[in-house]
Nucleic acid binder design. Sequence first.
DNA 1: GCGACATTGTTTTTT
DNA 2: ACAATGTCGC
Length: 719
Amino acid sequence: MDVSHILEHLNDAQRQAVTAPNQSLLVLAGAGSGKTRVLVHRIAWLIQVEGLSPHSVMAVTFTNKAASEMRGRIEDLLAMPAAGLWVGTFHGLSHRLLRRHWQEAKLPQGFQILDSEDQLRLVKRVLKGLELDESRWPPRQAQHFINGQKDKGLRPQHLDDSGDPVNRQLIRIYSAYEAACNRAGVVDFAELLLRSLELLRDNKELLDHYQSRFRHLLVDEFQDTNELQYAWLRLIAGARTPVFAVGDDDQSIYGWRGAKIENIQNFQKDFPGTEVVRLEQNYRSTGAILQAANALIEHNEGRLGKELWTADEEGEAVSLYTAYDERDEARFVADQVRDWYEQGNRRSEIAVLYRSNAQSRVFEETFIAMGIPYRVYGGLRFFERAEIKDALAYLRLVANKDDDTSFERVVNQPTRGIGERTIALIRDSARANDQSLHQAAIDLVTGTGLAARARTAVAGFLTLIKELTEVCVGLPLHEQVEHMLEHSGLKEHYGKDKSEKAQSRVENLEELVSAARGFRLDPEEHGDMDELTAFLSHAALEAGEGQGDPWEDCVQMMTLHSAKGLEFPKVFLCGMEEGLFPHRMSIEEGGRLEEERRLCYVGITRARQKLYITCTERRRLYGSETYNAPSRFIGEIPGELLEEIRPRLATSEPLYRPSALQDDGVEGFQIGQRVVHAKFGEGMITNHEGQGSSARVQVNFEGAGSKWLVLAYANLQAV
DNA sequence: GCGACATTGTTTTTT
DNA sequence: ACAATGTCGC
């Protein structure tokens, strides 16, 4: 067979990776060095040259987008469908395993997936059940704790409170949360991974089966794996399966959510005989842009070491624009966009990148005022919209009566006279009898525990769910959805509201019917799941795109994080100021600067032809005016690569820096400082406002929670 | 059940 | 500053 198409257009390093012998390989792939191409060609090589069945290959990515792009490119290269090939996200593949082996995983057949919002609601319910005060036990913190433990592979019984009462309570919450999930037959995102890991670990036969089935494992964006994901990989690989890991330590920007850069270092230990291949030739950016990126990232310590180079020309210098304020910054960018467009280029070739979402607003306002179409990435996604989640909750109840989260969501949505009191009764009864809310409601309606009015209302809801369940049997999926929308009263509820917002909700609900109509069961992915369950899982695992109209010629706006993996001819890196980027939080907390620098590196390397960096002299942030120094990252780019477009002018307002005031705190107290109060005990100052006799500080007390105290009266002592 | 008022947090995000 | 959420009263 002629396989030259697999090796054509690859450079030496790429070819070395693609044709590597049967052993583990760590590919350190710099930005723009053809990472995806190497992965895709490697898989094609394994199948067409090594003669492996697609059935024996698993490729793991982080996002659905990356997974579908990879599958598409593989099939293009092979010129045939790659049936049997497992390409997917960690979560998607874990989900697949759990569906195939739900019994061994001790899950109900129709188990459902909680997204983060569902999870938070459930945590809140659990806190209520434990009679814990939400202000002392913030649900988000508990959620974070639970996910953190799961990401480390730890169950409540593995945890030791080490005598710490806070820890003890959190473990209790985790335990109760787990019980609630099990009873409801739902799993959260981390659970998908942990449960599938345990499934294989505890079932020797299954493990043997999959370990011998998969003869090659490939991982994308390896620097973003967390502990649990890495353990999952090692387990499936076993002792024999070589792992082909592609990553870039310089682009690790998700440490804050548990990604372990150390996994790259450990990789060579855990997979003995691993070869390392570096991809350093960049096919994306001009010389100037790469030199700027290289110079910046040099300032990080403990890198694995890599230097990008290009055979391309030097290109234009990086432009630096120091704006007067954020409106001026936006105006500058808008002017550049307009010029570019008027020269006959496309606006979609331009990206505006920023550190935090809040920064997009001024740009949006300016673009609107100047009539420049734009698209902001990373808003609410389709399946995350409230009305869609309401509709899905009805469907989930149809599929699984034990799903208490869904029950609570729609029992009174639209309102049907089932108020807090009635719901509390149902909840108590459910807890007392260790039942689902749905079952408890049935018992209450037939029993005597409810007032006549409430009983009628609850009975009405139960009848509705029963009716939906019966009608749905045998109906095509989209008709099930349609029927539910009509009979639940959801559509009518939004329909009678004539506001624009409500109208778009109705449209979204109709869109849901279309989504259902277009949904196809994939036997590989979904096994023998019924259509409804498969559709609901799909909705949870792939939240859909944010906004429509991707085809209009729009300026692309997004955070630096969402820009990873993308490239644009012209890039604006905005808000390059100390405090914003690097972000204050990362400056204050030690050891987080390097990740910010990597984020900046990611930003710079998005640009193909031209990079602009902008910063402002003053900026309105969280209500008050701030005067920020230009980001240290600007200073780390050699001056000869930078060209200042508007040097600081004498016309700009005199710079005085009240930021020093803020850092000093008030009256000798600072944020982060530990203090003791006569009544509330010991705590830490978390905020302050006002001055003189009205100065107040917020203190988070260990025993009494968070309080605002007037300094003049509180008599706080520094610890 | 809804509107008025208060409180709170405000980096980054995928699944 | 501001949005998003929670609380309270009718």
